[in-house]
Design a binder for these strands. Sequence first.
DNA 1: TTATATGATTGATG
DNA 2: CATCAATCATATAA
Length: 350
Amino acid sequence: METPCCRPADPRRSPPRPPPGSDTDDVLQIMAITDQSLDEAQARKHALNCHQMKPALFSVPCEIKEKAGLNIRGILAEGPPDAQLQKLDNMLLAEGMCRPEKHRRGAQAAAGTATPGGCPNDSGPEHSDSRAKLSQTRQIYPSELEKHEQACREFATHVTSLLQEQSRIRPVSPKEIEHVVGILHGKFNSVLMQLKESTCEAVMTLRSRVLDARRKRQNFGKQATEVLNEYFYSHVSNPYPSEETKEELARKGGITVSQVSNWFSNKRIRYKKNMGKFQEKATTYTGSFGPFPMTSTSDTLITLQTLASLRPAPGEGSLLGQARGGWQVRRMSTASPIGDPGRVTSNASN
DNA sequence: TTATATGATTGATG
DNA sequence: CATCAATCATATAA
């Protein structure tokens, strides 16, 4: 009795599954979802959540995860880049970049206040290129830091609330949330590090360019030269302008006080070194009046040598008395300590 | 190109 | 701290 196998098979009803590759049915199913079915699903979910066995059941995966999590957590040894970060911070701080800090009160004032001990102040008017970039960087840096920190905070908050939300339907322990946030901070920190590194590099470059200022020296304008020379030759017996006068000259010439000081410093030296050449100029500014009469160029050379040799001699009394070797006897230069009682050294009389 | 003029920097001084 | 003296590195004249 063998059963004929070739019987028309029909006892197994073929399941009504859609043949593989047919997305149409899926789409149709999705389209079939109605608000009602959604509500129904929500209701069942809620019912599940409120089920009396739920806490007990839920604790099981939680415990399992807790145990598994401990192993993972061991790897979480954070914080080797701390030292380097600190280093970068210090460098940036030294360059005049200040971080907003937690109480951001002076974030704005940071831009204008140069860090003492940093770069010189108003020595270079013509490196405005690099200087401008530098100050721009100084201005932008704190705000970028602030942005970064804010983004970090927001993102962490987001993730935390997301995980808290999810902790209702899947095992997420507070510790795990903490862990994730920690990882997040790590990632953000590396970004921060990059930010600081690139800032540091840029600042160093700019600063070195500013410090190399003298390479890009530029002569003063006609006006400045005019004003300075006029003062110098009309006060050639005592070419030491007071601070006030320096400011005045600086204003008139469109240069800085430091530049005025530099100019006078250079001028005195060079005038002393080679007075003959300056003689002509002197006449153009003062109308043929100098502290000592120079006759001819050949005389000048001799005189110069003579002067050089008797520079230390205190031979006061001759015509050369004014400027000979040292008119550096700096008398009280106007607004300086006059009535010094012996106490207040730093007299701020502006 | 070289030579001179010139603004800025550096170290020393009192 | 202001100044001097020497020096650097560029700008300008030759």
